[in-house]
Amino acid sequence: MSEWRLYEVFVRSKHGLNHKHVGSVHAADAEMAMENARDLYTRRNEGVSIWVVPSDTITASASDEKEVLFDPSEDKVYRHASFYKLPDEVGHM
């Protein structure tokens, strides 16, 4: 219901893995958001842990910021291990 706050839902599918965004729910408060998220996104053992976060508290990068934010890393090939060629004799490093 739109009169209720929107929450984004993140689910950890099993121990040792990250929480991953799965969708959103509306709820009157965080406790209800948690219950709704459980009913909506984990009906078939999809998770072992849930986060719910009010959507309006998330700051997201805009699509027109893509170049500003991510282009600078494109010309820094020396940040990747594959940039450094080792002689075969050195073996695996």
């Binding site: 219901m1 739109s2 009169e3 929107l6 969708g23 959103s24 729910v25 509306h26 009913d39 909506l40 009906r43």
Partner: peptide
């Protein structure tokens, strides 16, 4: 019910209002 909710939530990402 769940499928309806997944879809309403996808629809809301386009700026539509669920109640409307």
């Amino acid at each position: 019910a769940g499928h309806g909710l997944y879809l309403y939530s996808a629809m809301e990402t386009l700026g539509a209002d669920r109640d409307e």
